[in-house]
């Protein structure tokens, strides 16, 4: 558990999905963010133009979190940030089904260029009227275990999602698993300690 190679996780998704919030909820260091004033109406005052960067330690393994911008005009950043990533967390706001097609396009853009295992996170689960992860899985034609409900403002919820993503990474490909083996105790102490809180 010492001198471990950091794992790179990328957080992507449409504008307003909660990417920056997710990184902020998880990071143990002050998040490096590149928020700028939004000049178009996107339902919030600022938007990410380059990346968010945060760090998290799970079972002694450093995890580097890279959040992407959401707008299509920044698609070059999706590609740059996903290089060398072990896992992709794609977020979509559960109360904005109109964003689902865009989320699907982002997913296709990234996975067609870089074969990276991903977890779809349906955010804003704290709201009363919100899509359930099961229904979103059906919409995206994904297995139910590849979709999870998240409240990105909660660090417990965000941490559970990250652990689930790392489990998917391990199951995805022997190559990835090899990179991870011995580094990370999947499904073990971390999940238990998270669930206790």
């Amino acid at each position: 558990m010492n001198e471990s190679k950091p794992l790179k996780v990328v957080i992507s998704g449409p504008v307003g999905a909660g990417k920056t919030t997710f990184v902020q909820s998880l990071s143990e260091i002050p998040v490096v963010n590149t928020d700028e004033t939004a000049s178009e109406d996107i339902g919030k005052a600022t938007t990410t133009v380059a990346l968010d960067f945060g760090m998290l330690t799970l079972d002694g393994i450093p995890i580097h979190l890279f959040g992407t911008p959401g707008q299509d005009r920044f698609d070059f950043m999706w590609e740059i940030l996903c290089e060398g990533a072990l896992g992709l967390m794609l977020l979509v706001a559960g109360d904005r089904p109109q964003d689902f097609p865009h989320a699907r396009r982002i997913l296709e853009f990234i996975t067609s260029r870089i074969a990276v295992p991903f977890l779809l996170g349906v955010t804003r689960q704290d709201l009363p009227r919100v899509w359930e992860p099961e229904d979103v899985a059906e919409y995206f034609d994904l297995a139910p275990e590849q979709v999870i409900g998240i409240n990105a403002t909660s660090s417990t919820s965000s941490l559970l999602a990250t652990v689930r993503l790392l489990e998917l990474v391990e199951a995805y490909d022997p190559f990835y698993a090899e990179n991870l083996q011995g580094h990370y105790d999947f499904g073990g102490t971390v999940i238990k300690s998270v669930k206790k809180t």
């Binding site: 590149t34 700028e36 380059a50 990346l51 005009r73 920044f74």
Partner: peptide, 17 residues
Amino acid sequence: PNRVAAMAATALGLGKR
């Protein structure tokens, strides 16, 4: 121009940090 504008904002935003 759309791409150039986006890249300019990214470079400037990163430069600021």
